[in-house]
Design a protein around this nucleic acid. Structure first.
Length: 418
DNA sequence: TCTGGGGTCCTAGGACCC
DNA sequence: TCTGGGGTCCTAGGACCC
């Protein structure tokens, strides 16, 4: 049996841990630049605030304090996540961290009759040590565990649901709408509904060749998983990323080349840091820019350019290439709203292919990069930067409502008055 | 004034090889 | 009348996830 454990309204719940007065208030968490809604407390959901809507649509609610808004505080959420995952490891050694707020737990070899109690204990422990409410769903496959988790969240008062018999599988599948199945997104659920497939149960009754033809092998896998045949294995060690991207939407659109060049340099440096963290080197670097896609009064322009590199993990080389690529796609007549850098063709840094005319720059850069990473790790995120990134941090995020980084900064520790 | 960020996998089609 | 068989690699686009 697998369990899927996830934090309820995770980001919103993190904010509540350090501000208990908010426990009964409707709260929302905003994306970078305070752009859209990315998390809501149950109270906010009940008010009809939808996931992903632009923040300005509920500005009146935020202003009048009917809803408390937070800018996203990833330092806090990331740290809370790590603490939560650590607790999971007390219940089984086989934990797959699936996202910032959820994990699959493998309970093979455990007695079925004890699982429910195990789930309850886990909830209790996470609540006591971390202060985040979680839901636990058990099932014979990952996809069924996901469904159990959903049922736990929606229908079980104690937050735990177990799907362990053929009868319960059928019952659970019949009460799950097709669009709520893990692996079936908007396009496919629309297509399936047109074909009279309304629930997860209906989906399990479809002929295999129909699914294979219209939804490829991934659809087939989902069907088997729903039928109780596990075919999505656990992944205990996160595989190295195959692509690394850093991109931002600017608070204000800009036609300033220098501003854009400094942001791009910053994105390239951030990508480089992520690259070195996973000990990879990149063969390709893509720069992309685009104007505001919502502004229909101005012509839309989006473009990208990819540069081939001798496999490198040096931010110096990356920044240089990024600036070259930007020069090629920059058009002075446009106002740019979003830009980014993408590294791909990643290989292990250890056994990268050397260029025939290798000059040894990477060897020279290696020590500089190591020192840079060490200093930033020890003394503060991005304390040391490249001159190319600019001195002004012009592309800094707008974060009007950010809470303190309670768990990762000495000067922002929570204070208690006695 | 105002709309996020970061990933993965699969397939079809083109270009190429013998 | 009529044009083989068997592959690989790469990329763009579409689907999905959080």
């Amino acid at each position: 049996m697998y369990a899927l454990v996830d934090g309820n309204n995770f980001y919103a719940s993190c904010e509540r841990v350090f501000n208990p007065a908010l426990r009964t208030q409707p709260i929302v968490v905003l994306s970078n630049n305070d752009g859209i809604i990315i998390a809501r407390s149950n109270e906010a959901k009940a008010m009809g605030i939808k996931m992903g809507i632009p923040a300005f649509e509920i500005k009146h609610l935020i202003k009048s304090q009917k809803v408390i808004a937070f800018s996203s505080n990833y330092a806090l959420y990331g740290d809370m996540s790590q603490r939560m995952m650590q607790i999971f490891g007390d219940f089984t050694p086989d934990v797959e961290i699936y996202s910032i707020d959820e994990a699959f737990l493998d309970f093979k070899g455990f007695e079925l009759t004890k699982l429910r109690q195990m789930g309850l204990n886990l909830r209790k422990k996470v609540d006591k040590y971390i202060g985040i409410p979680v839901s636990v769903g058990f099932g014979p496959t990952k996809t069924l565990a996901k469904i159990a988790n959903r049922i736990a969240k929606k229908h079980m008062k104690d937050g735990v649901a177990l799907i362990d018999t053929a009868y319960k599988i059928e019952k659970a599948l019949k009460m799950t709408a097709i669009e709520d199945v893990w692996g079936i997104g908007r396009q496919h659920s629309r297509f399936l509904q047109k074909n009279q497939v309304k629930t997860a149960w209906d989906f399990t009754q479809l002929p295999q060749d129909f699914i294979r033809k219209n939804m490829s092998v991934t659809g087939l896998r989902t069907q088997m998983e729903l039928q109780g045949i596990a075919c999505i294995p656990m992944e205990y060690v996160p595989p190295a990323k195959k692509a690394i991207r850093t991109a931002r939407t600017f608070a204000q659109a800009t036609d300033d080349y220098e501003y854009l060049a400094e942001s791009i340099a910053g994105f390239a440096a951030t990508c480089g840091q992520k690259l070195r963290e996973q000990k990879s080197a990149a063969n390709l670097l893509t720069v992309f820019v685009r104007t505001n896609k919502f502004d229909h009064n101005k012509p839309y322009y989006a473009n990208s350019f990819t540069i081939q590199l001798p496999a490198t993990d040096s931010s110096i080389v990356l920044i240089k290439a990024a600036k070259e690529a930007l020069k090629i796609i920059f058009r002075p007549q446009h106002h740019y709203k979003k830009a980014g850098v993408l590294l791909s063709g990643l290989v292990p840094a250890q056994n990268r292919q050397l260029n025939l005319f290798e000059t040894g720059t990477d060897v020279k850069h290696k020590k500089v990069m190591q020192t840079l990473d060490l200093l930033n790790k020890k003394h503060g995120y991005r304390l040391m930067k490249f001159a190319a990134e600019g001195r002004f941090g012009a592309w800094q995020l707008q974060q009007t409502y950010r809470s303190k980084r309670y768990t990762t900064r000495w000067d922002e520790l929570i204070q208690i008055k006695l």
